[in-house]
């Protein structure tokens, strides 16, 4: 199983990766500090990543831009790739907007905690 962590803050990626490992989430974890890079990598793969944690507030390409860029590939992704927004934002507007994306499975406030990881594992039925 491949997991993408997309956050311009390297500390954020490190923290998320460590927490996932501690919960024994197996597989390959790829971290990207630029959404553009992550997008290129994703589109090159024959098989999309099973799970994506996506930050919203990033320079150049924001989390929203990333989701918009995936829109044309939605049919290939739906059911095969779960995207969770992982953000420090508490704004209600962001939660509302996240709901409008079919590709988004949920919005999690940073930092990620154990219960949330287990819930995601259950949904993926790993």
């Amino acid at each position: 199983m491949t997991i993408y962590l997309i956050d311009d803050d390297s500390l954020g990626n490190y923290l998320t990766e460590t927490l996932l490992r501690l919960e024994n989430v197996g597989g390959e974890i790829c971290t990207y500090e630029s959404a553009e890079e992550a997008l290129h990598a994703l589109l090159r793969r024959p098989e999309p990543p099973r799970l994506i944690f996506l930050d919203l507030n990033m320079p150049v390409m924001s989390g929203w831009d990333f989701l918009d860029a995936l829109e044309p590939h939605q049919p290939r992704l739906l059911g095969r790739c779960r995207i969770y927004i992982l953000t420090s934002s508490l704004a209600l507007a962001d939660m509302e907007r996240a709901r409008s994306y079919e590709l988004v499975s949920g919005l999690i406030h940073k930092p990620l905690d154990r219960e949330e990881i287990r819930a995601i594992q259950a949904e993926l039925s790993i």
């Binding site: 923290l15 704004a91 990620l112």
Partner: peptide, 23 residues
């Protein structure tokens, strides 16, 4: 909005790292 977001981002990390230290 920006301030709360940008202030909260390092705070969320700090909270995460502090929790991690205990484990």
């Amino acid at each position: 909005y920006l301030l709360s977001h940008n202030l909260r981002a390092p705070l969320a990390n700090a909270t995460g790292f502090a929790g991690l230290l205990g484990r």
